[in-house]
Design a protein around this nucleic acid. Structure first.
Length: 233
DNA sequence: GCGACAG
DNA sequence: ATCTTGTCGC
C-alpha cells in the first residue's frame, strides 16, 4: 500500500506545537520563502477559507478552484474536524492550515496559484497563513485579508483597482487594494513562489462586483453553506 | 510600560 | 470568525 492514493504532501513539520515553539518555527521557515514571478500563465486559481461557529472547536474548510479567465468555479472540496490550537494574532496558520490541508489534498486539479483568506508576508515575521500554506504545499500563494495586521499604509484611490503599498520601514509587504468603490480596502500580499507585482495583478484580475476577490469570496460562501448544513442537522 | 492585534 | 433586519447613503 503506497502512500500515493491521495495527493498528500510530505509533512514539512509537526503541527502539534505550543505557541512559543510555533513562533520559533516561523523564524526558521521564513528563510525558505521565495518571492519570484510565476513560472507560467495562470489557468486555474484556488481559493481557501475556514468557517466555524462562535465558541466551537469544530472547523470547516473549503478549497475552490476557479477558471482564471471566467472566474467560474470548476471544482471544490470540503473537510471538517476539531481544532485545539487557539486564535493568537500572528499564529493563525497553526490554527487553520491543518484543516485546509485536508481539503486541499482532495482536489483533483492543482491550481497554479492559491488565494488564502488572511495575510501572506504582511506579517510581523513575514509568515502569514498564505505564506505558510505555500511553503507546506509547495504552491504559489497570495493572501487577501480584510484587516491590516502589521505595517503602515495610506488610503488607496477611490476607484476599483487603486492600490497603495503596505510599508514596514523600507520594506513593501503588500498593498491596500480598493476592491470596490466606497468600501474599505482589502490587504493583498504575496505568500510564496509569487512576487509583489504578481500578487497585486492576480488580486486585481479577480475583482468583480464584490469587496472580496472571487476565489476568496466563493470559498467563503461554500464553506458557510457546508457549515450550516452540518450544524442545523 | 502601553497599545495593537489576520481569522 | 459568527449572530442578524432594517436602514442610511451614494
Amino acid at each position: 500500500m503506497s502512500p500515493k492514493d491521495s495527493a498528500s504532501t510530505p509533512a514539512l513539520h509537526d503541527w502539534n506545537l505550543d505557541p512559543q515553539a510555533a513562533v520559533q518555527l516561523q523564524k526558521e521557515l521564513r528563510e525558505r520563502i521565495r518571492l519570484e514571478p510565476l513560472p507560467g500563465p495562470v489557468k486555474l486559481i484556488g481559493g481557501a477559507d475556514i468557517s466555524f461557529n462562535l465558541y466551537s472547536d469544530i472547523f470547516h474548510a473549503a478549497i475552490v478552484v476557479l477558471d482564471y479567465e471566467s472566474l467560474e468555479v470548476v471544482e471544490s472540496t470540503y473537510f471538517t474536524q476539531t481544532v485545539d490550537f487557539p486564535y493568537i494574532p500572528g499564529l493563525l496558520s497553526f490554527r487553520e492550515i491543518p484543516t485546509l490541508l485536508r481539503a486541499y489534498e482532495q482536489l483533483q486539479q492543482r491550481p497554479d496559484v492559491v488565494m488564502v483568506d488572511g495575510h501572506g508576508i504582511a506579517h510581523p515575521r513575514r509568515m502569514g497563513i498564505a505564506t505558510h500554506f505555500g511553503l507546506v504545499t509547495g504552491t504559489p500563494t497570495l493572501g487577501c485579508a480584510k484587516k491590516i495586521l502589521t505595517g503602515k499604509f495610506t488610503a488607496p484611490g477611490p476607484d476599483r483597482g487603486d492600490a497603495s503599498p503596505i510599508q514596514a520601514g523600507s520594506d513593501t509587504l503588500g498593498y491596500a487594494l480598493r476592491s470596490k468603490p466606497k468600501v474599505k480596502p482589502v490587504f493583498v500580499s504575496p505568500g510564496h513562489l509569487l512576487d509583489l507585482a504578481g500578487a497585486l495583478e492576480i488580486a486585481r484580475h479577480c475583482l468583480r462586483k464584490h469587496k472580496l476577490p472571487e476565489p476568496t469570496r466563493m470559498a467563503h460562501l461554500l464553506v458557510n453553506e457546508h457549515r450550516r448544513r452540518a450544524h442545523d442537522q
